[in-house]
Design a protein around this nucleic acid. Structure first.
Lengths: 193, 193
DNA sequence: ATAAGCACTTGATAAATGTCAAGAAATTAT
DNA sequence: ATAATTTCTTGACATTTATCAAGTGCTTAT
């Protein structure tokens, strides 16, 4: 039950007192999931917020042609949440799955609510987490709208180089919005240079 | 200074007492902007949160080839915010511009902070606004990654039909991540059916 | 250790979308 | 009302990406 990574994450995002962080993380409990396990399934309601301490995960869904669309790739340490399901108590549209063995912390919505309304620093932290996630997504939309596949690939390679050592290329391809054949060809082209 | 639309917006998103909403909107003041005016310029820090009561706006940026990339189209009534700039006090990367004459309300970060930390219902409202905006963006990424241009166009037409009566097609095209030529051809194809 | 199942690559071809340039149509300014 | 500007359309052609199918190699389960 070593919460040092979890606690450090709070400090890294927002200046906040050690005692306050310990109060916030008091209710978090941890568990381990092996590779290829579903953490949160489609059409269920997320009652927990998750912190991925170590390992890789993804969220994905199936489009109308039954192709997998990877919506996010998570590399710990980071929070993993289906915000809509968790806060609005709606069924998820996406599946959250481990891509490697993972170490995860969780706490309930009730605990989040208590902290959100009673600890000013947690409120600020929560909002900041939203802002950061929102802008990552925004940057991705801009990329998708304006950059070609090769550029998106090179950006991802620069931003998350370690992901490529743990996540299959076909999943990375679907995250980039291209087929695995196209990604394979892009990589071939680049390796020629 | 009729705040009824603004106040109603709060109620529509989240059950909240009339008196509490009036307290929250107390500090909002209004103004009018004519078509094609910049509300928030690139590289400036957003010190206000905006509520677009009436009219159309967009946010956009220029990519490396100096093409406009429209990141969002806003149709009042709705909040218009550069969250990153407003909450993290960072320079915006995008330009926020009116597309028609607009009626806008604004209040300062200080007022938002006071309400965020003192009014539980406002905290819930704020978070909900984030959640909703986050998922709109998430849906857009999924669309961009998995649907072709024609489908994205038809979805937008269904979801925001009135936008097409007030926003030039070239802006809609850049929002869809395609060129205006391609949008023109898509519309021609569809009109044939 | 072997078989089965995935992940990845590659070729041939097709579909989707972009580029550039010109002209038509609509809007805005004088 | 006219001119100027911007938006929209269209054609010819180029580029990007998808599709389908086959084959290779790697991983996993028995």
């Amino acid at each position: 039950m070593d919460k040092s990574t979890l606690n450090t994450y709070f400090h890294s995002l927002f200046p906040i007192q050690k005692e306050v962080v310990e109060k916030i993380t008091e209710t978090f409990s941890n568990f381990v999931l092996v590779k290829n396990t579903t953490l949160l399934d489609k059409d269920t309601i997320s009652t927990k917020t998750y912190f991925l301490e170590k390992g890789y995960m993804r969220s994905y869904l199936l489009d109308e042609d039954n192709n997998e669309v990877t919506t996010n790739i998570y590399s710990g340490p980071c929070f993993v949440n289906d915000f809509l399901s968790f806060f609005k108590k709606q069924p998820t549209k996406e599946i959250y799955q481990t891509l490697t063995d993972c170490e995860i912390w969780e706490t309930s919505l009730e605990n989040v609510q208590t902290n959100f309304h009673n600890i000013a620093e947690f409120r600020e932290f929560s909002r900041l987490l939203f802002v950061i996630n929102y802008y990552k997504l925004n940057d991705r939309v801009i990329e998708m709208a304006s950059q070609k596949a090769e550029t998106r690939y090179l950006n991802l390679l620069k931003q998350q180089p370690f992901t490529f050592q743990h996540v299959p290329l076909k999943i990375i391809a679907s995250y980039l919005g291209i087929t695995d054949s196209t990604l394979s060809r892009i990589r071939k082209e680049i390796s020629k240079l």
